[in-house]
């Protein structure tokens, strides 16, 4: 029932998106990402977890090149995609390679209709007929099909989030960078969106990197997780490992020790300088 053009392509196993010791500096001295290394397997869902201002979004923006529009640069290390260096490329060029970044906060093109908004993702990256491409995304987002003639500014928050994912999906990228898809949404809507993301990942073999504060939901669908703190990766592992880690439980899941915990009892990875090497 799901049309899946991806299945016909050669599956390339192994790590195809690699970040090696990446440092990101903004205009021109603010060091935000301080040496991040990640390896992402094709077809997996990877979660970046952490609180606000810790650098999750910046990592995604560094991969997609969007930092270039915000006076940021990768000043050290490299990012490799399919054996090709992509750090400091402009975002449109990265997007044409098959990496699409979905901004945090549901940036729909308000004045366009839903259908036009989705189609805008197809410009310059057309792989199939626009009509087929639309049907392909409507399969995953039937709700958008019902509303295709409405201006996207009038959609509800959840529908707008679906819209921006659909817009990213229509060009059939290899990697989808999702920035905070759960932001400000009702829990059942969050579930719906995460289910769809998981489904797309399974049916299309789409690699997803997810920056999330909703640690529990993110780990439910992820294959691997990284905890980001202060611009560094302080912990990584499979979802089970992270879920069972006492610090993650304390810090992000709130299901650790019972009762109130003093701040001093909580181990902050910031204070544990174990990564200095």
């Amino acid at each position: 029932m799901f049309i899946s053009p991806k299945l016909t392509r050669d599956a390339m196993p192994g790590n195809f998106l690699i970040l090696n010791n990446v440092e990101v500096t903004f205009d021109p001295f603010i060091l935000v990402i301080k040496g991040v290394s990640m390896e992402v397997e094709k077809g997996s869902i990877v979660a970046l977890l952490g609180a606000n201002g810790m650098g999750k979004s910046t990592i995604l923006k560094a991969i997609s090149g969007v930092i270039r529009l915000e006076r940021g640069r990768v000043t050290k290390g490299y990012i490799e995609f399919n054996g090709r260096r992509i750090e400091n490329m402009m975002p449109d060029a990265v997007a044409r390679l098959g990496i699409t970044y979905v901004h945090e906060g549901r940036h729909v093109f308000e004045e366009l209709t839903v259908e036009e908004d989705i189609l805008s993702g197809l410009y310059g990256r057309r792989k199939m007929d626009p009509k087929d491409a639309l049907e392909f995304v409507y399969n995953y987002f039937p709700r958008l099909k019902e509303r295709r003639k409405i201006r996207s500014g009038y959609l509800s928050g959840g529908e707008q989030q679906m819209l921006v994912i659909a817009r990213a999906l229509i060009s059939q990228p290899d990697v989808l960078l999702l920035d905070e898809p759960s932001l400000g949404l009702f829990p059942s809507v969050i579930n719906e969106i995460f289910d769809i993301v998981k489904k797309i990942n399974e049916y299309e073999g789409l690699t997803v990197i997810l920056a999330e504060q909703n640690v529990k939901k993110a780990l439910e669908i992820a294959d691997y997780g990284y905890v980001v703190e202060g611009g560094k990766i302080v912990l990584d592992g499979t979802p089970e490992k992270l879920m069972n880690n006492p610090d993650v439980q304390d810090y992000y899941l709130g299901i650790g020790r019972a009762g109130r915990i003093s701040y001093q009892d909580v181990k902050s990875y910031k204070r544990r300088k174990r990564w200095i090497s």
């Binding site: 997609s64 969007v66 529009l69 402009m90 975002p91 449109d92 997007a95 044409r96 699409t100 970044y101 979905v102 901004h103 940036h107 093109f109 308000e110 004045e111 366009l112 036009e116 908004d117 189609l119 805008s120 993702g121 197809l122 410009y123 310059g124 990256r125 057309r126 626009p130 817009r167 990213a168 060009s171």
Partner: peptide, 24 residues
């Protein structure tokens, strides 16, 4: 046309348009 839609998209939010492969 998709070209026209892309043009309007740039006028509404250049940064997002760029992340979708539109060269501003």
């Amino acid at each position: 046309t998709i070209f026209g839609i892309a043009m309007r998209a740039v006028s509404l939010d250049p940064e997002v348009a760029a992340a979708h492969g539109i060269t501003i």
